[in-house]
Design a protein around this nucleic acid. Structure first.
Lengths: 144, 144
DNA sequence: TTCCTTGCAAACGATTTGCATTGGA
DNA sequence: TCCAATGCAAATCGTTTGCAAGGAA
């Protein structure tokens, strides 16, 4: 993604969010890195163009608007990535050695099996399922 | 658990960890609350007996010793619970409305299916799996 | 007695916020 | 033009740490 995807631009406009230089570079930076990234990592990419405090504000706004999604890594730091409506549904492989995070997209069969498992496990407790997160920890090819 | 389980006591002794009053009440407090708990929640239970800084130190030591396990909730705060060798392997149902976390223990069939899925998804990326975390988000019976 | 553990207060890192200024629609 | 977005600095929150005093083995 060299330029902002029209679908993202549309979404921002639809949400009444101004498309500033800083936000453009923020989104492009996130798109250019694979796997969810921390504010610090993103800041290293966008450099002096966007100070940290502004970056945090943009990340919050973009997440709120559904352009980004965020989670917290095992160390407790927030990580951001493009939302699933854009990237497709996926899960994360996390290297316990170097901390790198890689996306994995389940096949339809796998996703179906996972959804079924989830429903089974949740229904006993009376929960209505809205989403799930599956994190696989292991050792990446580089660290092995 | 009114008194500290012998197996836990043994483990602490084996790890060369002193069993102090504060640590006893900390473990008992965690055992008495279902699902993983934050330091603040635990502190509210043990009260003035254990100041926050000492509590954090104990939690770190007990986690290191394998008596507790910790993760970070979606808001980025650390949550502690008894380790799986004691409670058994399980996953978490998280209420998106009130934030409560409930344990769910998969059946052998479910766990087997999950392990298989995980291996499939990880092997493509060349990862060697060491553990997994499955978090189901939804609405609890109380909030529904 | 000997170290490990505690308690306090101060330090930390990640994230948030108040306020005056700037820039996009 | 006008209000949302920015930049800076200061504040906040969860968590960690230095150091002297206390307590388990």
């Amino acid at each position: 993604m060299q330029h902002l995807e029209p679908s993202i631009e549309q979404r921002l406009t639809a949400e009444g969010i101004r498309l500033t230089q800083g936000r453009k570079s923020t989104i492009l930076a996130i798109a250019s890195m694979d796997g969810p990234r921390t504010a610090a990592e993103i800041h290293a990419r966008v450099g002096d163009l966007v100070p940290l405090s502004s970056l945090y504000r943009s990340l919050a706004v973009l997440t709120e608007a559904g352009v980004l999604s965020s989670q917290h890594s095992s160390e407790g730091v927030a990580r951001f990535e493009l939302a699933e409506w854009f990237t497709g549904h996926h899960h994360h492989l996390i290297c316990v050695s170097c901390g790198s995070v890689v996306d994995v997209t389940p096949t339809d069969d796998q996703e179906h099996a996972m959804t079924q498992l989830m429903e089974e496990m949740a229904s006993d407790a009376g929960f209505t399922v809205s989403s799930h997160r599956f994190e696989i920890e292991g050792t990446c090819p580089v660290c092995r």
